[in-house]
């Protein structure tokens, strides 16, 4: 993207720092940047903050956060959100940062998959293990159907009107879309490997009622093969729980097998990488591009440990250097939150 184009677009958000990723480390970056008067905007592809802690293990206890002998992934997220509240960061959820480039004015121009544009003085990549993406069932040739007949999310319900739809999975996404699409679709089949569902009990009840009325057919089994041509699905072969094979005529599939982490767009931003991780120094946690930092699970340096604790340390040092870029005219004085009245003012301490 050329600079003149970027500037021509009206409505680009301007901000001191963009934090890519709202995992624990991205959230604490808001805190450390806030202490040195840097305003932040945080973007995450997930629909809520917390990264791995909230998505993969919200209920599991973590035992190695200093001074919190035990805290669950969700509690840690909630406490971080409370701690960073005084800084009034802006949050954008459900969007992935796809493009990152330096413009001629020296600032960074970012673009999300939703077309949102942001201009920032510094960028903090806190992308963890990468962006969460839906798992792709390892069915032969599935790539050719993606976007045409195989969908990992529903963007427009209308796209499914009049189709023979197959939904695969046993959690809330599978159940919710079964309930929502059944009235629109020509036929709707819900397939799951066992006759037990993880979703909310009332959704399970509603689904069973639709099955009893003959409006949804429930198949206990797994898809083993896709049939069709040039991305247009005609049927699938399914193996049912008793081992029998069955052919189902369908022209749209929604597979819901959870999420996995993929490095994704970060790989294409021209940064020096080491086996899919962004190389940084251990003084400023800056990447090969000045003004772009990488913190938390996404970075690598000799001795790196993928611990939340280490990420917290990294953002404190990163913020010192970020301050030099954002407020070059100001001298940074080292201060403690305990004793500095100016820091306490920022934190809203009364």
């Amino acid at each position: 993207m050329a600079l003149d184009e970027a500037v021509a677009v009206t409505g680009a958000t301007e901000i001191d720092a963009v934090v890519i990723g709202a995992g624990p480390v991205g959230l604490f970056a808001v805190f450390e940047l806030g202490l040195v008067d840097i305003k932040t905007l945080v973007i995450d592809i997930l629909d809520r903050p917390g990264g791995q802690c909230a998505e993969l293990y919200p209920e599991k206890p973590i035992y190695d956060i200093p001074a919190l002998p035990t805290v669950t992934g969700q509690e840690l997220t909630d406490r971080l959100l409370e701690q960073i509240k005084p800084f009034g960061a802006q949050f954008v959820f459900g969007e992935r940062v796809d493009e990152l480039q330096r413009g001629e004015d020296g600032r960074f121009h970012l673009k999300t998959d939703a077309g949102r544009e942001i201009v920032a003085k510094v960028v903090v990549i806190a992308a963890g293990g990468g962006s969460f993406t839906p798992k792709r069932p390892p069915l032969e040739g599935i790539e050719a159907y993606e976007g045409k007949s195989v969908h990992y999310a529903v963007r427009r319900m209308e796209d499914f009107r009049g189709k023979d739809v197959l939904i695969v999975g046993g959690g809330d996404s599978a159940l919710d879309w079964t309930l929502n699409l059944a009235p629109l679709a020509k036929s709707l089949t819900l397939m799951h490997r066992r006759d037990e569902f993880r979703g909310a009990p009332h959704s399970v009840e509603q689904m069973r009622a639709l099955v009893a009325e003959g409006k949804v057919s429930l198949v206990i089994g797994q898809v083993t093969k896709l049939h069709g041509e040039t991305g247009n699905l005609e049927a699938v072969t399914a193996k049912t729980s008793d081992g029998a094979e069955q052919r189902l005529a369908v022209n749209a599939i929604l597979p819901f097998f959870g999420l996995t982490m993929k490095l994704g767009p970060v790989a294409h931003w021209g940064l020096n990488l080491n086996e899919n991780l962004v190389l940084v120094d251990t003084e400023k946690f800056e990447t090969s591009e000045k003004g772009i930092f990488a913190v938390g699970d996404i970075n690598w340096y000799p001795g790196k440990l993928k611990l939340i604790l280490s990420g917290f340390h990294e953002v404190a040092l990163m913020a010192q250097q970020a301050h030099k870029y954002v407020h070059p005219e100001k001298k940074l004085m080292f201060q403690y939150t305990t004793s500095s009245s100016s820091l306490q003012k920022k934190l809203g301490v009364k």
Partner: peptide, 11 residues
Amino acid sequence: EEDMLDFAFDV
């Protein structure tokens, strides 16, 4: 574990 196996392939 059963719940998590829902996310595996060819169970």
